[in-house]
Each structure stands twice: as C-alpha cells, then as structure tokens.
Write a protein that binds this DNA or RNA. Structure first.
Lengths: 227, 227
DNA sequence: GATTAATTCAAACGTTTGATTGAATCCATG
DNA sequence: CATGGATTCAATCAAACGTTTGAATTAATC
C-alpha cells in the first residue's frame, strides 16, 4: 500500500484549490486528478465519486471551524453574558483565522462561502447538519444579548450578519468592484474589526416600531419610476 | 421568418429560470432548449453560444434595475442630501421590487446574486461595467452622507451592505437554515425595512478609533483554541 | 406564384464528462 | 522471499456536452 494517505489528501488539497477558483461544476475530475498528479481512477478508488470528493473536501475543514466557534462561544459565556461584539467575534474569527492559514485555508473559505451560495443540492443536507447546531447556539446567545428584540427579529438580523461574512469571505479583496471592500493590504484583524463593528451596530439597531417613520416613507411613490 | 422574437425570449425566460435554480454550469444547452420547447440549434442561431445566452440573460434585466437605482438616487438628491436610509432604499428597493414582479423577476434576482458570487469569469467585465458607475454614484453619496468616515471606510461598509443585499436576495426565505432569514410570509416591504434599518446602523457605526477597545480585545488569545 | 431571406429542424460532429475495468505494482506481513 | 491485500495505472465505457451542418420550413417581397 503505497502513499495512500498522500494521494487522498493530495486530491482533497487540489480539489479545495480548484473548486474555490472555478466552482465544483467548473472542475472536471480529470483536470482535478491530473493537476494533483494522480490517476483519475484513484479518486474513485478512495472516494467513490466526484460527489463524495466534494463532500470530503467540505467535511474535512468545516468541523474544526464550527468547533472553534463553539469553543470561543463557551469561553466568552464562562465570563457571563457575552457582548454582541464577542458573539460576532466568535462567529467571524474562526473562518477568518482559517483563511489566514498558509496551507490552503483561504481556498477553503472561498469554497465554503461558494457552497453556501451555490446550488449544491447534494451538499444541502450536510450543510444543514453542520450548521444547524452552531447557529442555534448563536441564535440563542444573541437573543439573550438582545432581549428587547423578538426571536424572529434576531434570526433575521443574524441572517444579515451571515450575509456580510459570506460576502466578505468570498470577496476578500476589492477585486470584484473598484474601491469597494477590503484593500489587499488590509490585515485580517482589521477586516474582522470592521465587520464586527458594522454588524454589531446593525444587530443593536432600533427595532421596527421605534424606527423614525419618515426616513423611508414615500418609498412606494418614489419606487414607481419607469422601468 | 416564424416567431423569432418569441423563440429568443422563450430561451431567455427559460434560461433565467433554470440558471437561477441550478446555476449556469448546472444547466446544459440541451436541457435548456428542450425545456423551452425550441430546437437546440436555435440557441446558437440567435445567440451564437451558451456564453452569449448567459450574457443576454444578464443584460436584459440588469440595466433597468440600475437605471431605477440612479433615478431614485436622483430623486432623493433633488431634495438635498439624502439620509443614509434613503440611499440604502435607492440601492435595495429596485432589485427587491423586480423580485416581486410576476414575470420571472424573482428568478432573475436569484440569478443576478448568483452571478455575483459565482466564478463566471466571462461575466466579470460585463458585471464591472454595469455596476461601476452605479456604485461610484452611491459611494460618493454615502461619503457625503457620512463625512466623518474616510473614503475607504465608506467603501468597506458599502461592501458589507452589498453582502447583506446579495445574501438576502439569494436566500429570500428561511429555507437554507432553520429559523434564520425572512419568513416566507414576510412582505418585501418588511424585509426591505429590516435590511435598511440593519445596514443603516452599520453604516453609521463609530469608526475604528472610537470603538471601545475592550470589546474585542483578547481575541488572539481566545482564538487560539485547539484546531 | 416564384424568389429570397429568415428561421427551424433532425442529425451528426468531435470532445469531455464521470465512471469502470483488469492487469500491473507496491509494501507490510508471514 | 513468497503471499496477499492495498493501491496505481492505462485503457475503455456510455452518456452528455457545446457546436455545426445542410436540408426543410416559414413568411414576407417581387
């Protein structure tokens, strides 16, 4: 039994890199295995199918991230009720930290964010399983941190928060559009700080009833401009 | 020359629907044309290639949305400096309004958000061209509305704001994860209100220097939990 | 009603896809 | 050093891919 482990992880590493660049559908098993320098049959031998390769790529890294999120949350909660900023840090920092790792961590984060917005149906159940526990924990924690908001409002805002995170992980530097997003020179710490500040303010914003009615009133009239 | 216009638009309508569901790479030209009830060669006759079909799907709808954004922005600016909420409304309302349209508008918004997070390289230039003007306008407007922030900080926050929008358009109901995101029963107006309130608070949040240092201090130590 | 251009169609092109096979090779064990 | 399971390899499979072709069909124009 030759370098079995090497082959398996070589495939996963290469898949992580190529999938994150071109998407799962954009990478054939052939180009993947040839880029990895292994025979195409090796992928089927070790994983069974391309679908299983994809799942393996995902599963290999997401668990440590979510475990770290939970550990961070636990740590913060040991010292009493965490602040909104601490909760957001526990949610955002682990994936950003992974993205900073030299060994393809960044590739995985792009891939993960891509999975989140891609129609990978066969991943949906896996995705749900991996995240439902974590997000339930955070949902509860945010409800305690923001007791004046209802459960649904907290869930809605957590959804927005995840949008900021996914979008930032997916477009880590301002390549997609001019002058928007983090600069290439921005440190991950600075980006994390900015994200946490931005989202914390959103999480704490006044609920609907208290919102000054005039600010967005008249929208329907204005919005009816010619198409 | 039979129903030429019908065929062309039939292809675009079907492509819009299928692409938004399965992604561009997930839909073959064969399945697309057969779903549209036209011959596969018709797609090449009218568009030249699958790539051009994709571009046409995108171009057909994005311009009206961005035009409406600019018109809304102009309208608001006629009455003086718009508020942050008004700027966000001008940015978010047109795509949300399109999403509400009966004729496949929702499909297009999903598709558009998908393009934004997909690795459609051949679309990148088109995307940049379509959005650079619009986002420059909004970038300037936000800088005037938030003069205490630097240009780069405004750009970073606008990036976050777009993340909320894209993520919300891509996951319009709480299907992806339990209890997060808008309910299926939520109206678009309510979702828009919630988004505007959330993002406005983030846009207005204190810049980095003023941020209470203790809130996320100690992150490096905490973040170093076992992987 | 013939001419002509626009459009549709079935059929096939060559390539690439994910998957499979069976022989060859490797390496730990006896 | 022989055995045998684990692994790799080249070769091949049917299916699907985007694209192209040339003949058939349609609908205006003369």
């Amino acid at each position: 039994m030759p370098n079995a482990k090497e082959t398996k992880e070589l495939i996963l590493d290469t898949a992580e890199r190529l999938f994150s660049e071109k998407g799962v559908d954009g990478v054939s098993l052939r180009s993947l295995t040839s880029a990895a320098g292994v025979n195409i049959a090796a992928a089927h031998y070790h994983f069974g199918s391309k679908e299983e390769v994809t799942k393996a790529v995902f599963a290999r890294r997401i668990r440590p991230v979510n475990r770290e999120r939970i550990q961070l949350l636990d740590t913060y909660q040991e010292h009493g009720q965490p602040s909104v900023e601490e909760l957001l840090t526990a949610l955002f920092a682990p994936p950003l930290r992974l993205a900073r790792e030299p060994q393809r961590g960044y590739d995985f984060m792009r891939l993960c964010a891509r999975f989140y917005s891609e129609p990978a149906e066969y991943l949906e159940s896996t995705f749900r399983e991996e995240f439902s526990q974590v997000l339930s924990r955070f949902h509860e924690a945010f409800q305690r941190a923001l007791p004046e908001l209802g459960e649904e409002e907290v869930g809605l805002r957590l959804h927005f928060a995840i949008g900021v995170m996914v979008h930032t992980l997916l477009n880590p530097t301002r390549t997609c559009l001019p002058r928007l997003g983090p600069k290439a020179s921005d440190s991950d710490k600075a980006t994390l700080d900015a994200m946490v500040r931005f989202v914390a303010a959103g999480m704490r914003s006044a609920p609907a009833a208290q919102f000054p009615a005039g600010a967005i009133a008249g929208l329907p009239a204005h919005a009816e401009v010619a198409q």
